[in-house]
Design a protein around this nucleic acid. Sequence first.
DNA 1: TGTGCTATATATAATGT
DNA 2: TACATTATATATAGCAC
Lengths: 164, 164
Amino acid sequence: MKLALIANDCARRASYRRRKKSMLKKIEELSTLCGVEACAIVYSSFDQEPQIWPSESGVKNVVEKFRAMPEWKKHKMGNQESVMEKSIVKGKRKITKLEEENKEMEITMFMFQCLDKTRVQPPHNMTLPDLNLLSSVIEQKLNDISRRLDFTDVTDIVDTNLKL
Amino acid sequence: MKLALIANDCARRASYRRRKKSMLKKIEELSTLCGVEACAIVYSSFDQEPQIWPSESGVKNVVEKFRAMPEWKKHKMGNQESVMEKSIVKGKRKITKLEEENKEMEITMFMFQCLDKTRVQPPHNMTLPDLNLLSSVIEQKLNDISRRLDFTDVTDIVDTNLKL
DNA sequence: TGTGCTATATATAATGT
DNA sequence: TACATTATATATAGCAC
């Protein structure tokens, strides 16, 4: 099975229903058998409501625990523009450094630069949520690359340079 | 298999490691194959850090989306949803669907914009031959990426989204 | 511990209704 | 569509090291 978006709409819907059910079952089993606290949230156009495990309050508990992590605060932003500019400066420095360190990162940097340029002059009057969404899409893509190239983790890089 | 806490500590740990890995893989597959936004968080004494999917920032995005939701749920009037709420639900579903549909396109557009800014004129003034040239440049770049990353189907994306 | 192996259970895509 | 069936793929417990 190719690990990519299922093109056919009908097949994708069918697969979604099956896999969602199985996945939620899996996380339930994991939690029950191993006695661990866990939660899952799935947003899909196939469902009106977000699909969650365990209950809404159960998810809230785990989510609040996660939000309480110290790392959370540093991502909260005061002034939108200044943080953005700082990110760009930091990002560019990081790009330079990484280009020196690792030529294999070329592709990644290419995408970084894309984001940089787009952010300086947002092409479609992008809002902050748009940029956040885009950022996460790119991050996913970078993780994809990192997996294939056996990099350890690009999350830090993304967090440092791209998150708003 | 009895669906209850595994008593033996060693067996529970082993089961946890296996199942955690599988579950995270499953949610990744669900998200990738079906193009849905999802996250999972697992807290266990077996791991120091909470185990999550996708990245920290990815989880944050979903978590914030979830936290924002109960807010307008509380404004329900009696048993029936107001017209306003219904349109909000519809709107959100539409957004979710569009997000799903546009993910691949967004990445491609980034590359397009990047190339646009680095070497060619703004797209609005472009002539058809210019666009064709740009398209082939992008295709070449994508094939370059595909060669490095062992992708097989970049051409499809280009054909679908960029051929002008 | 963790890892590799294997028999069994489970999940899933494809297909038909 | 959703649901049932089935052939195949995947996950996993138990055991050996």
